[in-house]
Simulated assay, not measured.
Amino acid sequence: MAHTPVNHPARPIYRAIGGLVGLYFVVFGVLGVIAAAGDDLLARDDTKVLGQGSNLGFALVSLVIGVLVLAGTALGRNRDVVINGWLAYALMALGLAGLAFIRTDVNIFNWSVATSVVVMTLSLVLLMVSMYGKVGTDEEQDAWQKARLVL
């Protein structure tokens, strides 16, 4: 049994927060595509979007991530929990890799430290949203409450 809450009272708020994170990624992606229009896909130049280093490649990746998060939020019923959880861990790995490769030739997404900080922060928010957004039956909620009280 998972140790995450089932039917948390603030579940709608967490779901809305997840939607806002998805909306941020979509807005960032759209602004990134506009700012990097005409550049190479993985250009390493001085393109900044919302104060973060970016290029057309990362703008498109952000757009896809945002659409996935918004789709999961719209679908609900624990699909958002799975999508947000997996994307949170993937974004953490991407953020750490981006931070490790900022001053190297491997920095294909033209990241800056600000970009890495924002991606890591949003991944933690998505992880929190996935942990508190689980929906279940009354029996599952009772089992979770009993297990929580034992710990």
Results as ranks from 00 to 15, higher is better:
L63Q: 06
V69H: 14
L70E: 07
Q52C: 09
G57Q: 08
G66F: 03
I65P: 03
L56Q: 13
G72M: 11
V64L: 15
G53T: 00
L60N: 15
L75T: 07
S54C: 09
G76Q: 08
A71Q: 07
V69Q: 12
L68K: 09
G53F: 04
G51S: 12
S62R: 00
T47M: 05
V61A: 15
L68M: 13
F58L: 10
A74G: 03
L75G: 01
G57K: 07
F58W: 06
L60W: 11
V69M: 09
T47K: 11
K48I: 06
T73K: 11
T73A: 12
G57W: 01
L75D: 01
V61S: 12
V49F: 03
F58Q: 03
L50S: 03
V67M: 13
N55K: 10
L75S: 04
Q52I: 01
A71G: 13
N55M: 02
A74T: 10
V64P: 10
L70Q: 11
S62C: 15
L56C: 06
A71M: 10
G51T: 09
V61C: 04
S62I: 06
L56Y: 09
K48E: 08
N55P: 05
L68P: 04
A59W: 00
G76P: 06
R77F: 12
Q52G: 04
V61R: 13
S54D: 08
A59L: 04
I65V: 15
L70T: 06
F58I: 01
T47S: 09
T73P: 04
R77M: 09
L50V: 08
G76L: 15
L68A: 09
I65N: 00
G76A: 13
S54R: 02
G72R: 03
I65L: 11
T47G: 04
G57P: 04
L70F: 05
F58G: 01
V49T: 10
A59G: 05
F58V: 01
S54T: 08
V69I: 15
V64Y: 07
G72D: 04
S54N: 14
R77Q: 09
A71W: 12
G51M: 14
T47L: 01
F58R: 01
G53M: 13
G72Y: 04
K48P: 01
L63K: 10
L63R: 12
L60I: 15
A59H: 01
S54W: 01
L50K: 02
V67C: 11
A74E: 10
L56I: 08
V69T: 10
L70I: 11
K48L: 13
G51N: 09
L56H: 13
S54I: 04
V64T: 10
A74K: 11
T73Q: 12
K48Y: 08
K48N: 08
I65K: 00
L68W: 15
L60F: 09
A71R: 07
V49G: 04
I65S: 00
S62A: 15
G57S: 07
I65Y: 03
T47Q: 12
L63I: 09
V67T: 10
F58N: 05
L56A: 07
